[in-house]
Design a protein around this nucleic acid. Structure first.
Lengths: 140, 140
DNA sequence: TTAATAAAAGACCTTTTTATCTTTTATAGG
DNA sequence: CCTATAAAAGATAAAAAGGTCTTTTATTAA
């Protein structure tokens, strides 16, 4: 479904949302926590940063964090930023002309799956998800 | 969702199921019909053939076809043959330890919809799908 | 104002996926 | 039995994804 890059991005953002508001997380620390390759994770965070989905501060005590604004974004935003919107809307068997007008044989069922998930990812902010994660003790 | 290889495989099998029972389709013809790279498609068909999901005949008038038996298989079989079963069961954010016991934050939602798709792909044979495709004039 | 810190940026490498080309094997039909 | 045909098999190549390393830039705090 999602690329490995995107999986790291999702996990990184969720993880960032668990820290205290004013704490800046260094890539090394985050990479360790996620068991993700450090430099690769750095790239991903930079891309998210460039698109305003995470915030960062350079220099001593710097690092990545989620601003109030960032917390209001959704995982859908993160996913689209990394993998593009086609993960939700592209034809599952790769037909360029596939649409609800001229559907492929898997169109309806595949869309049910993807739109259901997309809805879930869209109508809950990252901040809200973080609360869920903490209360339910979910794995990241 | 599915690899390009898998997308070709699905389309190839569906396409094969539309021909008359006794007609053998050459790779060149099938590649043309699917607008797929010929040699690459050949590889895919060989893999499906090795796993008993399509049948083939060498020599003049030879080619690929679906036997009675092959028609009774499902697209789930095809997909698992090419992409492996993790497309249906692997953690969407890539956690090895993710399970219904220790779920990731997307576990429930992802599985709810994914299993819907899997069910659809599993409880309709390729032969049955072919009928649908013809009756509804769907795109392949 | 300088030294240490940490992100940003970019060059580079590795692996996997996707795709092509060539040779071998099997078989139908003249 | 020979030839043309078409799949099987295998080697090779190109592109994309995943991952690493080095240099540059910004910032803080001594």
């Amino acid at each position: 479904m999602f690329s490995k890059t995107c999986q790291y991005a999702i996990r990184a953002v969720l993880h960032l949302s668990l820290y205290k508001d004013d704490y800046r997380v260094g890539v090394a620390e985050l990479a360790e926590a996620l068991k993700a390759p450090k430099h690769f994770l750095a790239k991903i965070l930079q891309q998210l940063s460039k698109h305003g989905l995470v915030s960062s501060a350079k220099g001593p005590n710097g690092g990545f964090y989620l601003s109030e604004e960032n917390q209001k974004a959704t995982l859908e935003d993160v996913i689209i930023c990394i993998d593009g919107s086609n993960v939700f809307s592209g034809c599952v068997i790769g037909l360029p002309q596939c649409s609800s007008d001229k559907p492929c044989p898997l169109h309806m069922q595949a869309n049910a799956y993807r739109q259901g998930l997309q809805f879930h990812l869209k109508y809950q902010t990252i901040g809200e998800m973080a609360l869920m994660v903490e209360r339910q003790g979910l794995k990241i």
